[in-house]
Design a protein around this nucleic acid. Structure first.
Lengths: 216, 216
DNA sequence: ACGAACAAAATTGTTGACAATCTTGTTCGT
DNA sequence: ACGAACAAGATTGTCAACAATTTTGTTCGT
């Protein structure tokens, strides 16, 4: 196993281990349910076990890692059932954000949403599901950012991180982009119309659709 | 400073430090913004610094503690602004739970809610705001428990922990229990009627009222 | 007296070693 | 051959010492 040294900069070791490990999990380099042995990770990231340990504790409360007493850490696997529950929470929280964004967003920010909508339409027309999925993610991120609701943003980012695997799976399903595109455009329209209730409702019905698709 | 030893049982040191420290913060034994020096805490709880450190990292991601690089930890202070944002998130999440509880709860569980409602009415009639506040908390806990939405339960418990100080403040405000009592009874009625939409709406308008009171 | 430079103290970040626990493979009795 | 008791190995939990950083107090020059 290669000892991948970290930059000799004065970067905090724990921080380094944390970002490296999180990225590795999110990018799927760690197989689901894979054991995460502290010594190996310490070696791999060029830090000591204590730093890896601290990172694991933090990742546990982010929901990315599961730690059992005296039995170590593993990449957490999110069942479909859990994914549904998570998406239900997303539904109401993003609904909240959309409602606030409809009121709080600046005109420039509304333009950004419209531009994103057009790009998404193009991606569907060109049959590029991966591009569409990325834009999808970006749209949701922008909406919650524009809401100014920092607490909701924090919760949503944590929830989203747990769904990476399911998101991929969903995006590549045939016919799915077409259905979700119209829902996304409805969300954008409602926010642009500065109608909080309509915005919340549009987001909720969109994510209700996602839940149906997850259950399949 | 007394060296309060922990029971000699094989209890995990970090776990001990974690629960002790969390309880101390929640019960207000630590002044807001108080510095939390790792050495002192280690001494106080009878564990080593490493354990305290692990506990602090965990408490940070629970939002109870704030840690600054090379500058240590302190009890996090929640501004009114943040309390409002947190309560907005509670509003939509508890709304979700109430809706599900209206469908999922057993008849026995509905009876428990009714009993709680009666106890709350009595507490208000007797002019016991502290008892009322406790029952209030218990009612919300029951509703989210009955929903079976574990993810939402987890998020809500975390959010609630950050509000302890503000909750106290709110409960003792004159006239407040009377107003909130009718809202609570409406919540109970809607759930008992097994009407998800009405239940969600009742919870949301209740917490909207709480937000107004917070802003004051 | 005021402020900058410096030194001392306090505190956090990191490290390697040790103890406790769990897992796995082996031996022994039946 | 089968299962329980046991021993060896691997891995996590804990500890005390060291290094790096920040804060505080002091001195010195103007």
């Amino acid at each position: 196993m290669p000892k991948e040294a970290r930059p000799s900069t004065g970067e905090q070791a724990k921080q380094h281990a944390l970002t490296q490990l999180r990225q590795a999990i999110l990018q799927g380099e760690m197989a689901p349910a894979q054991r995460l042995v502290e010594n190996e990770l310490a070696d791999q990231f060029g830090v000591t076990r204590a730093s890896v340990r601290a990172a694991l504790i933090e990742l546990e409360s982010e929901g990315l890692v599961e730690r059992i007493l005296n039995r170590g850490s593993r990449v957490r696997v999110v069942t479909v059932e859990e994914a549904v529950a998570i998406t239900e929470c997303r539904m109401v929280l993003e609904g909240l954000c959309a409602g606030k964004a409809a009121v709080e967003a600046s005109d420039e920010q509304l333009d950004q949403l419209v531009a994103l909508g057009e790009a998404m339409s193009k991606a569907v027309a060109d049959g590029e599901p991966v591009t569409y999925s990325d834009l999808n993610h970006e749209l949701h991120a922008h909406i919650r950012q524009f809401s100014g609701q920092q607490v909701a943003v924090g919760l949503l980012e944590r929830l989203n991180a747990q769904l990476v695997r399911h998101r991929f799976q969903l995006a590549l399903r045939p016919g799915r982009p077409q259905k979700s595109l119209s829902e996304h455009l409805a969300m954008i329209d409602a926010i642009r119309a500065r109608d909080p209730q309509a915005a919340e409702e549009a987001v909720r019905s969109h994510l209700a659709g996602v839940i149906d698709a997850l259950r399949e």
